[in-house]
Design a protein around this nucleic acid. Sequence first.
DNA 1: CTTACCATGTAAGGCGTTACATGATTCA
DNA 2: TGAATCATGTAACGCCTTACATGGTAAG
Lengths: 189, 189
Amino acid sequence: MATEKKLDCVILGLLSHEDLTGYEIKKRMDTTLKYFWGASYGSIYPTLSELVRRGLAVREECDENKRNKQIYAITEAGREYLKEWLKQPAERDEIRYETLLKLFFGNEQGEAQTIAHIEDFREKTEKEMEYLLEAERDLKECLEDDDTHKYYLLTVEFGIKTYCAYLEWCREAKEFLEKDKKKEQGNYE
Amino acid sequence: MATEKKLDCVILGLLSHEDLTGYEIKKRMDTTLKYFWGASYGSIYPTLSELVRRGLAVREECDENKRNKQIYAITEAGREYLKEWLKQPAERDEIRYETLLKLFFGNEQGEAQTIAHIEDFREKTEKEMEYLLEAERDLKECLEDDDTHKYYLLTVEFGIKTYCAYLEWCREAKEFLEKDKKKEQGNYE
DNA sequence: CTTACCATGTAAGGCGTTACATGATTCA
DNA sequence: TGAATCATGTAACGCCTTACATGGTAAG
């Protein structure tokens, strides 16, 4: 019980909100959960089968329009399992930022390249930020409709706050490096 | 060339600063790089052997005190490899926050438990923050000694900024949920 | 003398990505 | 009619963690 597979829990969590197909689950991963969790088809479909085998979800074949579509729903046992996991404290929160790695080894590459990495990072962050601000707007409008929105909003706010911090850091880091560069140039005059 | 194994680069990066043993590399991962990269012995030692086999690092046996100790150093080819990787833009910056996941599915567990998760997260963050502030102090003192310190400091500042944002979010999120709870209680009066 | 730390490594197994393979439908 | 999107899945392979296995040394 101590080491649940996280993807099981994520999928069960999504199914606790609504019935979904594997394809739709993937879409949620790429939008709603994007900035704090991810998964590929290659892990989603096998996990889904596993969940059914264990009785935590059920598959409903649906032949609407002759399209073979498998809709998954959470079972009572699945809800129990999810709740049990939710009770335990989170054991692992981790970030893997290649950008920071490249930054850390900045002395091997020189100032200009480091600044370019920061610039890249800023652009990516700004793009993500736009999406989050849009989500925030939408969610605030329909906060009363559904209790799940409240919690979704909380994660969006988390994203916005941290992205703001990233952008601030980008500005200051660039300034810091550029100031340093100028000082160096000054030495040669 | 497009898909270098990240651990190769991290280790090479550390070796570009100084010669190290596998044990020391692990220590760096657990302290300096802790909050944006991690690795276990089970991956470090095999990677180190692989690096030597490929001529990107060399192993120097050292029988100081009869302790069998393998010191690794980066080679010219290793430096080239590292620089090549540093030139490419970072392709993957990702976070995996179980806390956010548990939050997202908060409607399944109720307000009190969600608040407890936030509380846990705040505590962890505060502890990490202390360490980062200490590192910041130390680094600022010896900034001139070594060029690598400058880049290290940049990553520390990144950590401090984001952790500040986390703590701010914790406060606001709790407030938001508690306000909501009060409203509910009000309804029953 | 015993605890903590230094130090290296392997084996099993889990988890996940990438690439591949296929085909229907919708919209311009 | 062609592109985008919907839709499902498998196979190969890579990477990493966990657990195990071993032993020296320093400090209290």
